[in-house]
Amino acid sequence: MPLAVVDAQTLVDSVALGAVYALMAVGIGLVFGVLRLVNFAYGQLVMAGAYTLAFTSHFHPAVSIAACFAVVIALSTAIDLAVFRPLRGQSPAVMLVTTFALAFLLQAVARIVDVRDGTIGEPVRVVGRLNRAVDVAGVNVRQVTILAIVLGVVMLGLLALLLGRTTIGLHMRAAAADFRTARLLGVRSDRVIGFAVFLSAVLAALVAVVLTVRRPLVTPAYGLQETIVVLVGVVVGGLDRLWTATLGGFAIGFATGLINGVLPTDKTIFLPTAVFTLVILVLLLRPGGLFAPRGAATVERV
């Protein structure tokens, strides 16, 4: 196949998708850092936020978005208290199975709530006008695309400041490096974990807002596919460090956008096979992730 020319439009859209996935990667990576827990149910936080936006569509957008944040943060905190806290100290595999169960549970709850009106799927109309295009240097760019990129850059910048310049950030980094030693030195585990869970919920709510502009029809499976793709990116990038995980998330989002923009659909049917084969290869050959510094393999192996 001849190399297709990538136009500026596809490129910008891919960067935006990468930014959204990077935010999700940070949300997953933050919790993994302090809890050693891969949150398979992260997409259901996004889904809950998206449903909140759908059900509050008739309110002022600011109210609707505030409700979205409130619901996602409340849900995330509830999950932490009811599920993650009792599981602390369990093996990562048990925690993964639990979040897997949680993902199905939340999805089924959403389904029950959704079909009350007889149809599956609820449209979000709150921020639909962000779909309008503006002209940037001759390229038609939707406002949400710009929003996604700006949000991605700003949030990652804020997070870098938070982790690098504040006490709680220092505690989080310490907890991620060695939880037990950090506790011995006076880091309060509940506060650090609670804060990480809170931050990841804020990111999930932001992702919900941006995603619902791009894809306004919310279904129970909303966010599931994205979570799987982001998990792939995070593992390929390197789960042990937040920045490699984020980079992995961005890379997979960017690549997905690019491939879907350039290749026709019938050429991408085996794409999942290629992607997941890559995951297996990375886990086997570079368990620290593609972007990790050499010689830094920390993943548990036989």
Partner: peptide
């Protein structure tokens, strides 16, 4: 043959990848 070298979380994710590949094919 290759995957049984992994354990814990890595095994969980790699076997999930197997499920996705099989389903896709």
């Amino acid at each position: 043959l290759p995957l049984m070298r992994l354990s814990g979380l890595a095994a969980g994710i790699a076997t999930f990848a197997v499920l996705e590949i099989t389903n896709n094919l």
